[in-house]
Computed example of a mutant assay.
Amino acid sequence: MQAKSRALHDFGSTFLGPALHCYAESIEAEAEGHLPVCLAREGWCFYRLLQRLERASLISLPHAPIYLRVSRTLLFRAMLGDPAIMPMALGNDFSGSVLDLMRKRFGLQLHEIFSTLPIELLRFTCELPRDQALVQQWLAPHMAALARLVEPTREALRAYLRQCGLDDPDMRPLMLDLGYSGTIQKVLTHVLGRDTSGLYFIATKPGDAAVGTHHAHLKGVFHEGVGWRNGCVMLDRSLLFESLLTAPHGQMVDIRQKHDGGFEYFYGREAATQRHFQDLKMVFDGAIDHVIDCRRHGVSYTRRDVQDLYEVFATRPNCIPHDVWHLFSVDDDITGNGIINPMQMFAI
């Protein structure tokens, strides 16, 4: 193995491997009666992890895992105008114009926005969640038109979820994701019209959350009930995990059903990890190889072990090797921030 490849592989083993090992143990413990559903960008690595563990007969799951190509942007677009989802869509941080909000939070194209909303409204600026009620008031006269605009996305999403088997009455979906408040799980609970479970690295609001007449149950593996900027390094500096736990195609922003019953997927812009995905794959391989070795040889980590290890990488300069610096960037368009670099943000 070349020196760079070895460095990437070793970094995956030490940085991601212990966390994935604990997470796999928790998935196996929660899996009975559930359909494991690996969500969004982070879920791509979890899906590969579970597939390899199953092939090696190192994990017992009641159903083969599913990789679900979704994102908050896609779901907010699909459910635009739905009164049960709009408070959730407008409840997260955002700063910018209404035009930027419709483009970045809801994934609308410029021609869709200008054909549906008046130009005067698009110039207004807002800060969410502070202006949530005001934005809902501004959009209220246009909700019916917006709902009609996204109907093809909404219908394709529902067909896609059915094809993936998420409507199976005998298997409750177990959503697998990095965290934190379970927004994707809650929207899917509403779309599916059924109770769901979620297992996350971190759950900021664990327990049952009512979504209409159904419930989304959230559980965290490494932390539960923690808040942002309250001293939890794994949460406050979670962008390091978010940078790496991504998919080769980036963030999904739209879906269409084709005439043959298949689906066409549309993605947002690429971050550094998409441009250098072969390098990121080496990091994943190192992490998953580590999990396999641990399970074969009876090696275990406590949650405290993983928390302490992450704190070292996230707070001390030069612990992350130079060979992987180029992989740390995150598409944070949904908040209006664009591409951000956590290495620079955290000065490590």
Rank of each mutant, 00 (worst) to 15 (best):
V253R: 14
V253K: 12
D254V: 10
D254G: 08
Q257H: 06
Q257P: 03
Q257G: 08
K258Y: 00
K258F: 00
K258C: 10
D260P: 06
D260N: 12
G261H: 05
G262C: 09
G262I: 01
E264Q: 15
E264W: 00
Y265S: 06
Y265K: 08
Y267C: 10
G268Y: 07
G268R: 06
R269W: 06
R269T: 14
E270S: 12
A272D: 13
A272G: 10
T273C: 14
R275F: 07
R275M: 11
F277Y: 15
F277D: 10
D279E: 13
L280N: 15
L280D: 11
L280R: 10
L280C: 12
M282G: 10
V283D: 09
F284L: 06
D285E: 15
G286P: 13
A287F: 02
A287D: 03
I288P: 03
I288M: 06
D289R: 03
V291Y: 09
V291L: 08
I292E: 10
I292T: 05
I292W: 07
D293R: 13
D293C: 04
R295C: 02
H297P: 00
V299N: 11
S300H: 13
S300Y: 00
S300N: 04
Y301G: 00
Y301N: 02
T302M: 01
R303C: 12
R303G: 14
R303F: 06
R304F: 05
R304I: 05
R304N: 12
R304E: 15
D305I: 03
V306Y: 01
V306G: 02
V306D: 03
Q307I: 14
D308V: 05
